[in-house]
Nucleic acid binder design. Structure first.
Lengths: 145, 145
DNA sequence: CATTTTAGTTCAGTGTACTGAAATATCAGG
DNA sequence: CCTGATATTTCAGTACACTGAACTAAAATG
């Protein structure tokens, strides 16, 4: 199998899994992007989230509604400014969904010796960098998830 | 960075790239799933494609319309049965879009010695298997892209 | 305090992709 | 041939997320 087929298979599998998770939990792709942002950058106000994902405040209400309904995020009033709503990703919210995946991936990683694991980790890190760069190139924006 | 964060970063980056490609070419996530199927299983009729991606024939017309408009797939009449339309993925249709990615990934892979490359390839293969299994678990169907 | 600004939600309108059914074209059987 | 079955497209209706604007609430300003 060529490296190219390789990447395509991985990409397809990742996307299929992502879609399945979304369908299972009743959230859209955009919702999941918002959640990833919250997980990566920590809690932020609804307005900040709107700017980050380039959506209107009205749309963000819907995004957070769905994430909350799925138990993936929480709304909390900002005690310092009661107009504001702070949205945060629920810790380990994917627990049930990701439990099997995490366990299986741990098993997979366990198969390799230390040097191999270093190579794999390095490969993944560099792959992520490449993907982000190419995503920026396509979108023209500085935002690459 | 834990293995967990790791996977999430890769997943997010892959999905973001996938979305960017779709937006760039004017095709939906479903369209891309259909295209991946055509690339993997070879040309098939519109009806077969409809069954594979679990959509009505009417919806498939739209899917193929968009793929054709983007230059990613082709419609051809079946000479043996002129009611049928055979849909095929255009070879190297992603050329322009994926050129940068392919080159960068080749560079990345080049950094590792033979043993490391073997470990990486094995890791990717097993990861794809795990993802497909977990996708099946979530959807309950036998279809995991 | 009254006024202006800011934050978020609500809501009507819009765009898009899907379903289900009707229409069109072709094949297969009597 | 004529009839019934099959393959795809077309089309009206539906579902859903997004936009833009009005609305509510709270903070900042003077």
């Amino acid at each position: 199998m060529s490296g190219r087929e390789f990447g395509r298979e991985l990409s397809t599998a990742v996307v299929a899994f992502h879609e399945a998770v979304g369908a299972h939990l009743g959230v859209t792709a955009v919702d999941q992007r918002a959640l990833a942002l919250l997980a990566a950058k920590g809690p932020m106000t609804a307005g900040a989230l709107a700017r980050e994902i380039a959506l209107t405040p009205g749309a963000v209400t819907g995004v957070v509604d769905r994430l909350e309904r799925a138990g993936l995020a929480r709304r909390e009033p900002d005690p310092a400014d009661r107009r504001r709503v702070v949205v945060s990703a629920v810790e380990d919210a994917f627990g049930e969904v990701f439990a099997g995946l995490a366990a299986s991936m741990a098993e997979v990683v366990d198969r390799y010796d230390e040097a191999e694991q270093r190579a794999i980790a390095d490969f993944v890190t560099r792959t992520v960098e490449v993907l982000r760069r190419e995503t920026r190139r396509l979108t023209g924006t500085g935002d690459a998830g």
